[in-house]
Structures are given as C-alpha cells and as structure tokens.
C-alpha cells in the first residue's frame, strides 16, 4: 500500500507540475553563500557541535561541516544555521 501511495503522489506531482518537496516529505535546503543555510522539513538534531551538525531527515540525514556553526533559530520543521560552511553531505538510509 505505501508503495502504491508513493507512486500515486509522484504521478500527481508530475501532472500538476508541483515542486516535489511540497508533495513528498523531503527536505528543502537553501544555502546563501557559505554563510547561511536553511533546512526545511527536518526531523530533529542528531548531533551538534561548532564544527558539525547532523540533522535527521525522512529516510536519511544531512551532515553539515564547517567552522563556528551556530543555530540561529530552530523550529519543528525549520533550522536556520550560520557559520562558515564547508560541506553539506546528504546520506540516505539503506533502501527500505
């Protein structure tokens, strides 16, 4: 059933020309230079230090590395990070 639902949603997204992050539960990551980073649709903080931030996503996590990382604001769905960002790595879990 979940497989069917996923396919149906994908079809709808294509048909209606919607951005995929609205339809699926996947994150939208906005980066301004290497100074600011916006992540929407996260699932919580896994690890946080001034050099590394690991955020849980649906079906994976994103790992941000850099210098002097500060979470300027955090809400249930959004994170706003400032600092000198050098790496953004996106990891997916083993396919379910």
């Amino acid at each position: 059933m979940p497989q069917l639902g996923k396919r149906l949603r994908k079809l709808t997204a294509q048909f209606l020309d919607l951005p995929e992050d609205v339809v699926f539960d996947i994150p939208r990551i906005t980066m301004i230079g290497n100074m600011q980073l916006y992540i929407e649709n996260h699932r919580g903080v896994m690890e946080f230090s001034d050099k590394m931030l690991k955020l849980r996503l649906t079906g994976g996590y994103v790992e941000i590395t850099g210098q002097d990382l500060v979470i300027r604001a955090i809400l249930t769905e959004e994170v706003f990070i400032e600092g000198t960002i050098s790496n953004v790595a996106y990891r997916t879990d083993a396919p379910s």
Binding site: G44, V45, M46, E47, F48, S49, D50, L69, R72, T76
Partner: peptide
C-alpha cells in the same frame, strides 16, 4: 544528551535561538 534536549524543546514548541557549541 544535549541534542535530545534540543529536539524535545523543539517538539514542545519552546522557542530557542542562537545556539552555539563550545
């Protein structure tokens, strides 16, 4: 368990900001 504290606060919609780690 500082990360867990963060997640709990966020879940409870308690606003926190300017979080930095030393």
């Amino acid at each position: 368990q500082m990360e867990r504290l963060l997640n709990r606060l966020v879940d409870e919609r308690i606003m926190i900001w300017n979080i930095s780690r030393l």
